[in-house]
């Protein structure tokens, strides 16, 4: 009986030596500066519009405006509470002397992770996952791999573990690189900046049961956790497709089409409720944190997480059954 550890080491080494991970680093190193520059233009624009006005005065005006709304009798009870918390948040900005509109490394990272989770991050994960089993088939090395005195499920398990390791590193790297690169431009502070979370807009209703103000670092940790989970689910599905079609190109194509279909669906299925069972529309778990309106009514963070878990589990079961039973004919 061979230990699983040397197998995992083999797989990690192969991904590394195949320079798949360098591709990811390269993509990030090229794209993040571009996004940073775009963000910089936005910031400059905002500054231009604001003129020389002191941000403290703007925020105070906003607080005043919100307070007026809260005292209005036509205001719904939930919204009233939301505005009260929002006023608290703005007040915290004033107390800590942080301009809520000024970008910094941490805000940029937060936004970048939130925008990456639906498509960008899954694509990076695909670079590694699509190749893991299909690559062995197309190179013919699968024959050597499966004729060792090691059961097939162990071989596949080692690939899953290696994949998990790389997905984790990819998510962390994305955050680290975007913090470091944008930090050079916007400054490295912003960890303690207050962020509003735990509320959700459902139709015209506002759910504020868990509304809370947390420091931005905590928000980032939560965000990264969710992004990691979404990426892992995409990785599992890509693995299954890779096991089933045994071709890198076909596997990539199928996964790309599915993911892009997800982003298209997100924009048009607001009235088709059962579309919420597709995994693609559930990937953007991060948006729940900042209270964005879900693409389909009835989507909640827990629903999405459960849905993604079920998809991942099914894909893992199918992968293992097919991988251990199938005849290697080519």
């Amino acid at each position: 009986m061979t230990n699983i550890y040397p197998l995992v080491r083999n797989e990690v080494l192969k991904i590394w030596k195949k320079k798949r991970f360098f591709v990811i680093v390269l993509i990030l190193a090229v794209l993040i500066p571009i996004f940073t520059y775009a963000q910089l233009r936005v910031a400059l624009n905002v500054q231009k519009q604001m003129g020389t006005e002191d941000w403290r005065i703007v925020v105070q005006q906003q607080i005043q405006d919100y307070e007026n709304r809260v005292s209005s009798p036509r205001m719904q009870e939930e919204w009233k509470r939301w505005y009260i918390v929002e006023i608290q948040r703005l007040q915290l900005h004033l107390d800590q002397n942080i301009d809520p509109k000024s970008p910094n490394g941490v805000t940029f990272t937060n936004q970048f992770v939130a925008n990456s989770v639906g498509l960008f991050l899954p694509l990076l994960v695909l670079v590694i996952a699509a190749d893991l089993v299909a690559g062995e088939h197309s190179a013919g090395t699968i024959k050597l791999l499966l004729t060792r005195p090691i059961k097939r499920w162990k071989v596949l398990l080692s690939k899953y573990i290696a994949l998990t390791i790389y997905v984790s590193i990819t998510v962390l790297l994305l955050a680290a690189m975007s913090y470091l690169i944008s930090g050079l431009v916007f400054g490295f502070n912003g960890w303690m900046q207050p962020v509003l979370t735990g509320f959700q807009v459902i139709g015209s209703e506002l759910n504020i049961n868990n509304i809370n103000i947390i420091p931005q670092w905590q928000f980032l940790v939560m965000e990264l956790g969710l992004a990691w989970f979404s990426s892992l689910v995409v990785a599992c599905l890509a693995m299954m497709v890779s096991v089933l079609v045994r071709s890198i190109a076909a596997g990539m194509g199928i996964m790309l089409a599915t993911l892009i279909a997800g982003t298209i669906l997100t924009n048009m299925v607001s009235s088709w409720e059962s579309a919420k069972y597709f995994f693609m529309v559930n990937l953007q778990t991060v948006s729940y944190l900042s209270g964005a309106v879900p693409p389909i009514q009835g989507l909640t963070l827990s629903f999405s997480l459960l849905n993604l878990s079920v998809w991942a589990m099914i894909s893992i079961v199918i992968s293992f059954i097919v991988f251990t039973k199938r005849d290697i004919l080519n």
Partner: peptide, 26 residues
């Protein structure tokens, strides 16, 4: 065994290939 062609990992060195398969044996 060698089934059909001796297909090994072309992006690894000969030695790394042997280490890879050695890790799969007790």
């Amino acid at each position: 065994c060698i089934v059909e062609n001796p297909e090994l990992y072309s992006y690894l060195t000969g030695w790394e290939n042997l280490e890879h398969f050695a890790a799969m044996l007790p």
